[in-house]
Design a binder for these strands. Structure first.
Lengths: 240, 240
DNA sequence: ACCTGTCAACTGGCATGTCAGTTGACAGGT
DNA sequence: ACCTGTCAACTGACATGCCAGTTGACAGGT
């Protein structure tokens, strides 16, 4: 008789209540799992057993099957026929590709914003930047991460293209997970804020090339910080 | 040469045989439907009834449900609870956003390629360009469309980032469908080839700014041609 | 004519049963 | 010790049944 390995699953019972969201069961389950994977509640490699998840959510396997199919299409889980689906391992190659895409998209975004930005938008961005400073002073790492995300999301939304932030998120899923691993680093936020400020300043001065350059530099800072992850968390990476 | 009629719903029974591909039934069905939607075999607005599709494919509703869930996540079909899923209508807003993304991504691609391109890559691109000319001479519109696609795909693959073309396709699905509607236009291909040539020339000369400029110009040519579509095919567009 | 309440047929969401492919422990041969 | 064939339990893939929400035709009231 085989013994079920429980090590990685000990925190699975912290899944949010399904009643907290709307839509079909399958959609809600997808949302919960999506979030759990992105915030590393389900770290890379975690097996997703349909029967087990169904039992945990108090539903049948059907909606879980649907949710996992979508996660697989998004690339967040890997599923082979007849084999338990697993949360996709990180891979340095994927992170490089997503970084390239992020640079391409956010570069184009700030280039455009430098021409179209309004005073109201500048004000909101400025306020967010202040918030980032306050959160760093308070040592609220998680809060800073969210304000950082919001800064970038705001830039995307200010283009007036409202699917943009969704698309950008969709093609930087692995990167999002990897950045969770970088959260503990304390020194970085201060530099980040300076770089954000330079991007904003370029946009304010309507200096598109400067804004693009600042954004590329800012995003480029991520690359050298990603490299050590493969050594620090080898079990989260493919073939490791 | 045969042009596929796009408005004809009665030929839905021409769906390919499932045995022609690999993977689970759900994956194969997804692939068939995905292709059918992108090439307008299923035009925007087409209802996708699970029972009907299941019967047509000779399977049960379960794998069809999974396939449609994925299509919905991709944005190719719209599904509301208890309401028949429909192929997503086109919308000018979505096309604008996807054009922006395409410019951002392909611009970054050629900028990078201008620095890294090898002679072998230049040769393959040159050969593809010749092929485009031949196909235009033969009046093979569909063949030209595919060679055009391949030109852009090759550029993406030559970056060495092998998920890139997949990501790019993933965020330009609506655009892909709209471009099918532009196929009948006869004069355009010749201009397209000239523009492709300028992009390639920029890459060959390792002149990144020129290559980017040429690519942006090339992709920008699409915008004015998209606009009339909303008048020509109002029933394919949202609220129309 | 128009609006409105009702109802039957349709359709999708979910639960469940069955089956086949995969896995991994273990026994037996080398 | 190591390799290998075997087998039982595990797991996902798919079929099917049932129920609830939606829709659209139609009857009756205004």
């Amino acid at each position: 008789m085989r013994v079920k390995p429980v090590a990685e699953l000990s925190r699975v019972d912290e899944l949010p209540d399904l009643r907290s969201s709307t839509g079909s069961l399958a959609q809600r389950i997808h949302h919960v799992l999506h979030t759990a994977i992105l915030d590393l509640t389900f770290p890379p490699g975690t097996p997703l057993r349909k029967a087990e998840l169904a039992h945990r959510f108090g539903v049948s396997r059907a909606p879980v099957t649907e949710a996992i199919a979508i996660l697989a299409a998004e690339g967040l889980v890997e599923a082979m026929p007849q084999v338990t689906a697993r949360v996709t391992p990180l891979s340095m190659a994927a992170l490089r590709e997503e970084t390239f895409l992020r640079c391409a998209i956010e570069g184009a975004v700030v280039e455009r914003l430098a021409k179209t930005r309004t005073d109201a938008q500048l004000a909101r961005l400025g306020r967010n930047l202040r918030l980032q400073e306050l959160l760093v002073e308070d040592g609220d790492t998680r809060g800073f991460f969210e304000a950082d995300e919001e800064f970038h999301t705001m830039l995307q939304e200010f283009t007036g293209l409202d699917r943009l932030s969704g698309f950008a998120a969709q093609v930087t899923l692995q990167l999002h997970r990897a950045r969770q691993l970088l959260l503990p680093e304390a020194r970085r936020p201060t530099e980040t804020i300076v770089e954000h400020g330079e991007v904003l300043e370029g946009i304010r001065r309507q200096d598109a090339p400067a804004a693009v350059k600042a954004m590329r530099f800012h995003l480029g800072q991520l690359v050298p910080r990603l490299k050590p992850l493969e050594q620090t968390y080898p079990h989260y990476f493919r073939e490791g």
